[in-house]
């Protein structure tokens, strides 16, 4: 039988008139990495906060949440004790240096001083921050601050690590370092739940992805499954004003799916030969023939137009 670290059933949550989360259900397997993918305002953060009791669940009473065997409404302390949380903002204590930040945080778990010191040494080494132990928070780069927040979340050796946009705004080196560390943690048995806007991140880390939009879960599955089930294999991206109708006959147009924005036309099809023939007929326009990726799935699922919450 599969063990679930998190089970959420039919949860809704609204703020005033805004339905942040609508009737959402999902299950996260133990020792897996689960990702929420969705545009801004999709309800990803709200759903995460409900898991550790930072948000209360909707008042219409329906639904249930179980995290590591506990209901956040009754036992938030147990959940918080067993989990680590990396919030969207780096809320470190700016007045304190790196080591004091972690020492203060270790008190919240009532770690004895000696255990805390050795744990902190280990975590600084793990996140490659050992030479910054005496630095002030302001002297740290964005990437270092983010790594410090992750180190802080790992203080109590959590069974469940919750990360809200762990790598937004970071450079590629730091992103890859963080991804590596998250993979290591997963290999050692930590369950990981993360939100992200980055398709590569979801693809690189997650066993299962839930695509959310306007508070509801709209697609779920492994990255590979999402690709094969929901979108054609190849895309031809054409930049410029040339109309597709001028180069393609009706029979071809029947076989492809077209997605237009003002400057770009994307032609989706499972047959790359057909797309490459089409590209050969383009005169002077810039084009790019590639395999489709999660971003294509995402745009197809959530629609291209911005909604009022983005």
């Amino acid at each position: 039988m599969t063990q679930f670290a998190i089970t959420v059933k039919n949860i809704s949550k609204s703020f005033g008139k805004v339905n942040a989360v609508r009737d959402l259900s999902f299950e996260v397997e133990a020792n897996a990495c689960y990702g929420f993918l969705g545009p801004n305002g999709a309800g990803k953060t709200t759903m995460m906060k409900m898991l550790y009791g930072k948000c209360t669940r909707g008042e219409n009473g329906g639904g249930s949440i179980n995290v590591l065997g506990y209901d956040p409404a009754n036992n938030e302390l147990a959940i918080k004790y067993l989990s680590g949380v990396v919030p969207q903002d780096n809320n470190l204590d700016e007045e304190l240096d790196v080591i004091s930040n972690l020492m203060v945080y270790s008190r919240f778990y009532a770690l004895p001083r000696k255990a805390a010191t050795s744990r902190i040494d280990y975590l600084l080494g793990f996140m490659e921050l050992s030479d910054k132990r005496a630095a002030r928070i302001r002297e740290l780069s964005g990437g270092m601050q983010r790594r410090l927040v992750i180190a802080r979340a790992l203080m109590n050796n959590p069974k469940l690590l919750i990360l809200d946009e762990p790598t937004t705004g970071l450079d590629p080196q730091v992103r890859h370092l963080i991804w590596d560390k998250l993979r290591q943690l997963k290999r050692h048995g930590t369950t990981i739940l993360l939100t992200t806007h980055y398709m590569e991140e979801a693809f690189a880390l997650c066993d299962t992805i839930l695509i959310m939009d306007k508070g509801a879960g709209i697609l779920r599955g492994s990255p590979a499954e999402l690709l094969t089930k929901n979108v054609e294999k190849y895309v031809l991206e054409i930049t410029g004003s040339q109309t597709l109708e001028a180069i393609a006959d009706d029979a071809t147009l029947q076989k492809v799916r077209i997605d237009r924005t003002q400057e770009t036309t994307r032609v989706y099809c499972d047959d790359d030969q057909l797309l490459s023939n089409l590209a050969g007929r383009l005169e002077g326009a810039r084009y790019f023939l590639r395999q489709s990726n999660l971003e294509d799935v995402f745009l197809k699922a959530t629609g291209r137009a911005l909604n009022e919450r983005q």
Binding site: L77, K80, Y81, L92
Partner: peptide
């Protein structure tokens, strides 16, 4: 502004 409480409330504190 500092969002210090958000960090603290992720630890075992109500």
């Amino acid at each position: 502004f500092e969002k210090v409480y958000d960090g603290m409330l992720a630890a075992p504190l109500t």
